[in-house]
Nucleic acid binder design. Sequence first.
DNA 1: AACGATACGGAGATACTCTCCGTTTATCAA
DNA 2: TTGATAAACGGAGAGTATCTCCGTATCGTT
Lengths: 190, 190
Amino acid sequence: MTVPPSPPARPMRADARRNYERLVSAATEAFLENGADASLDDIAKRAGVGPGTLYRHFPARQNLIDAVLDRWMASVLTEAEPLLEAADPAEALAVWLRRLVSHVYRFRGLSSALIPPEDKMKGDSPGWVLHSTSEQLLARAQQSGQIRSDVVIKEVMMLVSGVTWACTSGKEVDADRLIDLIMNGLRVRD
Amino acid sequence: MTVPPSPPARPMRADARRNYERLVSAATEAFLENGADASLDDIAKRAGVGPGTLYRHFPARQNLIDAVLDRWMASVLTEAEPLLEAADPAEALAVWLRRLVSHVYRFRGLSSALIPPEDKMKGDSPGWVLHSTSEQLLARAQQSGQIRSDVVIKEVMMLVSGVTWACTSGKEVDADRLIDLIMNGLRVRD
DNA sequence: AACGATACGGAGATACTCTCCGTTTATCAA
DNA sequence: TTGATAAACGGAGAGTATCTCCGTATCGTT
């Protein structure tokens, strides 16, 4: 028995789409200013919509966070393109990791954005694309013989997300230095 | 002009001390169950005191967190003693770092406990003692020639606190593996 | 036991999250 | 253009947390 295709989703109305965009913009601004626990009422006010509207579009805070992160990830992925062809694959990986840290820590409370998604979430979501892009950069460095072959991207990203978190701890952190130390641990020993 | 010594602090009344102890115990339990953002009203109820009493003893949530962590640090420091005399100083450092991670991540939201205190906070507070103990273990491994001499304890502890944070992210994390990778980055290259 | 100082409990103010219902707006067909 | 319908709206108010403050209780000293 073949499952019939579900009917095409009714498109969002123009006013709803407009409000959705406003909310994502307002949330980006509020998260940058006050971190991921910024008041949702404040975000609704910034967007010029009622609280009910915010919750209708984003039933929980995490949905709003996801929307903001999707935008961010889509933009940061463009920075990976040239690195995928760099002459020094290990250095390209290091540059990429430093880039990720410098972007994510601007959003206090969103360090978990770098934690790899579950395998079941494969698809073309920006989070997954960022994960697989990082994986490509690691694989390339491994194939060049510079990075240990026993390292998997998941653990690298865990370490890196920890660094982004440390950067938001309120203490002064030399993120580049921490990434260097991590990279040193990934390099093949002569 | 010499500043006169301040008069000795009046000792806390018996009932106040009793309530303080109750609050710290209740907070420990609540933080273990629900993380560092457990409801303060719930903690007051658990301790059998009114909300006003909780705030009198602990004006902000961080004060309560500090009290809980002081207790914890005092107990975990006893585990460092034998490590300070271990035959393999690098392995002793690794064991110590793994111990710290396994202890801290039980308190969701308290990963920042491992971030080194500011220099101006030198003293015999447990936080500072933990910091200087870690420094001793690092110095010992450096003197043995196993660990790079350019590494400072602050950056190590930043990395480790990031790992403890990752452990509380809700995703499965092999903390020992991450510590191994970090240690590998600290080791002298042949 | 009396007195003064310390410490108390918890009602209520405040600020947030979240729901829900009457109203408004957008879209489509005639 | 008009009218009908469904989508989407705003925001009052319920619920829950943090935090303050004042009348009352308790402790410690004489």
